[in-house]
Design a protein around this nucleic acid. Sequence first.
DNA 1: CGACAATACGGAGACAGTCTCCGTTTAGCA
DNA 2: TGCTAAACGGAGACTGTCTCCGTATTGTCG
Lengths: 182, 182
Amino acid sequence: MRADAQRNYDRIVEVARQVFREQGYDASLDLIAKQAGVGPGTLYRHFPTRDDLIDAVMQAWVDHVEETADKALAYEGGPRDLLLHWFEEYVRLISVHKGGPAKITGAMGDEASPIRTKCVVLQAANGRVLDRLRAGDALRDDVSSLQVARLVGGVATVADQSDLEPAAVRPMLEVLTDGLLK
Amino acid sequence: MRADAQRNYDRIVEVARQVFREQGYDASLDLIAKQAGVGPGTLYRHFPTRDDLIDAVMQAWVDHVEETADKALAYEGGPRDLLLHWFEEYVRLISVHKGGPAKITGAMGDEASPIRTKCVVLQAANGRVLDRLRAGDALRDDVSSLQVARLVGGVATVADQSDLEPAAVRPMLEVLTDGLLK
DNA sequence: CGACAATACGGAGACAGTCTCCGTTTAGCA
DNA sequence: TGCTAAACGGAGACTGTCTCCGTATTGTCG
């Protein structure tokens, strides 16, 4: 990539991250281009679709996901607390941006989604935690990791769309936890 | 209301119902106006916001909700089957239109929502079923009916956005059911 | 019946967002 | 330094939302 192209690419991603955080994922892309000091054409050449831009914005986030899963796995305690704690982290992770839960959970399992890579990372992290529980024979065995991701994603989506406090989300996650453990 | 106004109102609702079913709740309103043979001004005078139109479209649906709850309550069997059956019906009810689950579940608890009346009806129906279970001391008592509605709504939202088959939704509802019963 | 408010209509157009095309500019190599 | 491929960026086409206001219709009252 040419130096100027790289410069603009980075600039756009940086601005987009900020704007998405402030206004949600449906912010105007032309506005992002303007704030980044480039024309709309430049933005659309680098990121043909909105999802492509979102994908780029989330790059840093990926590392954070793995780290969070590591921490959750290091947790010493019962299965219920482990799972509940992980679910809370999971919700927090996918809720960094307004509209994020719906976006991510909707793309989960969709092979063709532009943000697929992010979903894979998230699913891998979730799978690691669940496998630990499966190893201890604590998890009911008629649900897949994908289904669990969708269940928790569903709670996060509702919480996001209804502007719920974390305190209001917790009991819902408890229900999930109890429903998932043997 | 003047006769011609009434005529146009009915016409718009009828067309909107069909278009929403085909294209989802974000279909173009000007297009609905055109198909109904009226100007955009007329549509927007009758229905200032999209939600107002959606609300009108859902009027017939309200009756169906109550009826469905009645049927569920008439069910003879264990709490688990009763609850699971009701949840499946609930998901079906709010999934009549693409985007419906998110729309309805997001509005739940929002006093100012234009589709609030619909949510109230739905919550009342849900409350009736849950109260029956509470009477039999079968339901965990740290969750409200609203929280249950959000949990099931979350599953429906994810299913809607990921185009899941009913068969894929069932196990998720089973997890909820098991998590909710004592 | 006819006239006159009151009510309702509807389309032109302002505005905002998406996305593309293409003439212009620039980077980087020879 | 000169050349070419790569990249830029903005004008503008297109689509959807929503409003304003001149025009048309309704229904009532003398």
